[in-house]
Nucleic acid binder design. Structure first.
Lengths: 119, 119
DNA sequence: TCCTCAAGTCTATCGCGATAAACCTCGCCT
DNA sequence: AGGCGAGGTTTATCGCGATAGACTTGAGGA
């Protein structure tokens, strides 16, 4: 789903929406000024673009997300494994863990997640 | 290590080097023309930039890598988990796997990698 | 009626990554 | 002594994501 590809600025912006939706657009402008240092028009420009793409929605000055954060995250995770690890999750994991050590407890949690995906 | 951050074009280029090093620079130009559609000067421009950064090396017309592919991959994997998953590997894994199903064998392989990191 | 302010659009500008044109040097061959 | 190709640098140009300035519209209050 190429649709879910967000650029850096877009992702930061969308994150603010996800964290605060539903949110009034003027209030959102204020938040972006605080957290991103954006001017009003910048916020509206990005908001419009994401709305046109069906990612967000601005109706009667109330902004909500049409696409879930999880869906964008899923796209991101797949894209990286695809681009840098030939689509191989094992390769990704090996690289990520590296010499890094994890606790027995963390290992359990990860194995649990993996079990969940076996069917 | 911010040093390992490669842009898209740089990464594609470095990949060709990793796959073929040591390689003569003129030969590398030919490869880039074939695989990336680049002109000679484009190849040299990118090569110089990566050499200046200590990622690659061009000595007596022989190009080699000073930084291992694995190190760049490690940076990439960490960056994504950091940026999109609050640094949480479990969150990344959950998102990546999603409804996707994996075989018992693949699960074993993954668990093996995880075990390796416990200490 | 006029002012204000919320709400939003349209059209730049700007920085930077991606790509390349033009030019240079130097050894080698004829 | 002149051409030629390998090897390389310097200096643009270009596309696009990031950001914003200027302007518009419409409701509500003094």
């Amino acid at each position: 789903m190429e649709k879910y590809k967000l650029f850096d600025a877009e992702y930061k912006f969308a994150s603010i929406v996800w964290d605060n939706e539903p949110i009034n657009s003027t209030e959102l402008v204020r938040l972006c000024t605080d957290k991103l240092g954006w001017k009003k028009s910048t916020t509206y420009t990005v908001l419009k673009k994401l709305s046109d793409r069906g990612i967000l929605q601005n109706k009667d000055a109330v902004v909500t997300a049409l696409v879930k954060r999880e869906d964008v995250q899923k796209y991101e995770s797949n894209a990286v494994v695809e681009k840098s690890f030939e689509g191989s999750l094992p390769k990704f994991l090996t690289s990520f863990l590296g010499e890094r050590k994890i606790t027995e407890q963390e290992a359990e949690e990860l194995k649990q997640i993996i079990e969940e995906a076996v069917k």
